[in-house]
Write a protein that binds this DNA or RNA. Structure first.
Lengths: 133, 133
DNA sequence: CAGCATCCCCCACGATACTG
DNA sequence: CAGTATCGTGGGGGATGCTG
């Protein structure tokens, strides 16, 4: 477990003028990386359906490997977006649930994903047009 | 220039039950990859401020290399999110602008980024708490 | 100024095998 | 079932140098 680094607090002024996001080593970029990662996006959206087990998620998110599932869930858990509940039984039974803040951010991510799915036809059409000109 | 692949059309039924996003090789995942890529996010948000030149963007998005700037802009252009306008002068003058659909998706991305910046204190606090327990 | 070409590195990720 | 450990690869991405 890597130690948490000292957070640097951006001034309110910085935040007002559209943020420190554009700054290197801004802590937000790290969170953003977890959330917008290839599997982070899909897991957050998947978890909006409610509490699910490890194997449920593995089945639902097509193409994810066990390694990346475990790792991404750990990222999201460490950011406080996902709560992991392990029942001491055999065979093991572990459940994953979105926290309050996890639900909030998942909805933002879902809005993005939904927009893309909805507008996919036009996007593809634009690509084809470009390739033909 | 790579040929555009034949788009496969997901059935409406699939779309209704929360999408083909969970399917491997879904075209949406590719778009999502461009948009949520490390630099894609930042460029989209940066371009919400209006038309900007290559070097403007390079300065604004701290830490990006010329290579990744050019490459990411090409991704976004090929998806129809960014329009590239090149003026035939020397020295070269090239401008980048969000298209209509680019503006829409950029706003979704911005909403996500803003949420993170706003809630960063709580997120960091949650991380610290976890590391101490 | 706005790139493209080239080289190179690192790590995200997949595949496989093993465990409590 | 729900993971860890290990190994190998691809490509994301940086640095540098060259052009119109």
């Amino acid at each position: 477990m890597k130690a948490v680094e000292i957070p640097f607090a951006p001034s309110l002024a910085d935040r007002m003028q559209r943020g420190d996001l554009f700054t290197e080593k801004c802590p937000s970029r790290e969170i953003l990386k977890h959330v917008t990662s290839r599997w982070g996006v899909l897991l957050l959206v998947a978890l909006l359906s409610g509490t699910q087990r490890f194997s449920d998620l593995r089945r639902k998110v097509n193409g994810i490997s066990e390694k990346m599932l475990a790792q991404t869930l750990q990222w999201l858990e460490s950011d406080g977006f996902v709560e992991r509940i392990s029942y001491p039984v055999v065979p093991p039974h572990v459940e994953y649930t979105l926290t309050q803040s996890g639900t909030e951010i998942a909805k933002k991510v879902e809005a993005l994903a939904d927009w893309i799915e909805l507008n996919l036809p036009e996007i593809i059409a634009a690509q084809i047009q470009k390739s033909e000109q």
